[in-house]
Write a protein that binds this DNA or RNA. Structure first.
Lengths: 107, 107
DNA sequence: CTCAATAGTATCTTTTAGGCAACTATAGCA
DNA sequence: TGCTATAGTTGCCTAAAAGATACTATTGAG
């Protein structure tokens, strides 16, 4: 059962990706497809549990695509869907603001 | 003691405003100065404690300005600083994405 | 036969978030 | 005299989130 979608579009976005880990996962996936282990290493500080959990909900929300290869040892690749990739504008805005803030704070 | 600023600009932004309540507070303050009680009513579902706590840290990070009037009953006004207001670009991106997602999902 | 590597689960513990209720100060008003 | 309204603070408590650790399956390599 899906939660109902809030009226406010900001809240909608918040619901789908307003979460530290999700944002960092998206940030790293914007560079392209990554394997589970790669993400675990690149998303600094995330636990296996959190990574799995977040990837699962993002998959449900159609933000990422999960591709399992029938190999041993296992290989699973994660890729942003078109919808997921479109979050780039948000991430870009955040990155730009972060840069700006650092310049302010550093001065 | 301030936490040290992360290298990644996205993480910087996340650290300052990557929090459900902060984003909603900023969203509502983008319309202009508001009193404590007004915010409490407009940020749907927030408790007094959370509102106070979030406003305090946002004040520390120089995102909002707190103005106390020496009146009875007390009157306190909150306004976004220039830095705080500059988060509008991020909120706008989020709002736009949210709209887009709703159109997709609603179809 | 056993080990390594990957992508997870399962379980337990700790940390954090957040709600609830009570308390404060004080000018004006009935 | 006591009530009201506002913007808090403080303490207590619960529930949810996150972290740590151990475990699983599989198979090719040695």
């Amino acid at each position: 059962m899906k939660k109902d979608i809030p009226a406010c579009p900001v809240e909608v976005t918040l619901m789908l990706m307003g979460d530290k880990w999700k944002i960092l996962i998206i940030r790293d996936l914007l560079d392209g497809t990554k394997r589970f282990g790669e993400l675990k290493r690149s998303v600094c500080g995330i636990s296996q549990k959190m990574l799995t959990a977040n990837l699962r909900t993002m998959e449900e929300c159609m933000l990422v695509d999960r591709k399992v290869y029938a190999e041993v040892p296992p290989k699973v690749e994660y890729t942003l869907t078109e919808t997921g990739y479109s979050l780039k504008t948000v991430l870009d805005a955040m990155a730009e603001w972060g840069e700006h803030y650092k310049r302010q704070a550093g001065a």
